[in-house]
């Protein structure tokens, strides 16, 4: 067992527990974006930063990947942490301003404006969908491609992967592209959804086993009107 101090509170946790889990065990809120129970920690979004150590040796680390150590002193909402977190949120907001999840997080943390160039990307490369596909769906249909500015997530060669079962899990977990319906591009689709039906989504009640991560569906609504 490991004993660490978080915001002055002592917590005793099992070995292998991360600082994030320990803090949540104590009921301390740490915002996360790329963290999900059941998926391996990745440390991509940097929203979960906390401050560890004392004095000049204090440093900022991502709590979702930092293992709890005996005697570790953690501060989850010091001025430095709040500042870092706000900066991260500003940057995320600049790359994906249309994401409801990021907007909500920004508003919750009192980020009212951002100073950077608006990008309108539909991906923050948090890797949630990649890990979902690999670790929960056992498919490994999508992955990271390229590097640096051209890094992106998708299937190899941008064609529909044979490993993909159109479960839609990647879109379910995505914090940025939740409302992207791939019905219009069936050859690149990662969600079978309504594209399997013809005409799409009519008589949806008659398809008991139909799985669509998006309910109500954008495509059906468009078709109805």
């Amino acid at each position: 067992m490991i004993t660490l101090t978080i915001n002055g509170l002592e917590a005793t946790v099992d070995e292998g527990t991360t600082v994030l889990e320990a803090a949540r065990f104590l009921g301390l809120p740490i915002p996360t974006l790329c963290h999900m129970e059941g998926l391996s920690p990745y440390g991509a979004c940097r929203l979960c930063v906390v401050e560890i150590g004392e004095g000049p040796k204090a440093k900022i680390v991502s709590s979702c990947t930092y293992p709890a150590q005996d005697g570790l002193r953690v501060r989850t909402s010091s001025a430095r942490v709040v500042r870092a977190r706000k900066m991260v949120l500003e940057l995320l907001l600049a790359s994906c301003p249309q994401s409801k999840t990021i907007q909500d997080l920004a508003s919750f943390h009192n980020v009212r404006q951002q100073r950077f160039r608006q990008e309108h990307d539909d991906c923050i490369l948090c890797g949630l969908c990649v890990r979902m596909c690999e670790e929960q769906m056992m498919a490994k249909a999508i992955g990271f491609r390229g590097r640096g500015q051209t890094r992106s997530i998708g299937t190899p060669f941008d064609v529909r992967s044979e490993a993909c079962r159109l479960c839609g899990g990647c879109m379910y977990v995505c914090p940025a592209c939740q409302l992207r319906c791939t019905y219009t591009e069936p050859d690149k689709a990662v969600c079978g959804g309504c594209a399997n039906l013809s005409p799409p989504c009519v008589d949806i009640e008659s398809f008991d086993d139909m799985m669509c991560y998006m309910s109500p569906c954008v495509a059906c609504e468009t078709a109805a009107h």
Partner: peptide, 12 residues
């Protein structure tokens, strides 16, 4: 290996 991993390395 999964093609995704190989493609990832090849494009990296």
């Amino acid at each position: 290996r999964s093609l995704t991993d190989i493609y990832g390395v090849a494009t990296f």
